[in-house]
Amino acid sequence: MLILTCPYCGLDAEETELHPGGEAHLKRVGPEGSDEEFEDYMFARKNAKGVHFERWRHAYGCGKWFLAARDTVTLQVYGTYRAQTHAPPQDIVDAIRKVRPDWQPDWSHAE
């Protein structure tokens, strides 16, 4: 039963007030994409052991989707941030590196 802070309301919401949405920072592949690209977008998920970026909706709250950087092993939450971004903001990256200096970002389309 996680607690995540909704970056829109600033409220600490517990898991029962949230709706999970799977891996974050996927890049949509439209009609022009190849079969391989589409497969990767539609089906291939990281299932990370450790640092993971995921989508959550404050469903029983403001209704907004937000993103969380979380450690799937220790349950540490490095931070939550608004969904309107293609890559985690620098303060989130810094928070992760503080705990895991060796961690390398691996999203494919960082700006």
Partner: peptide, 13 residues
């Protein structure tokens, strides 16, 4: 409704 909001908030914001 959630599906629409998802695309509006997370893809075509």
């Amino acid at each position: 409704h959630g599906h629409m909001e998802d695309w509006l908030q997370c893809e075509w914001w």
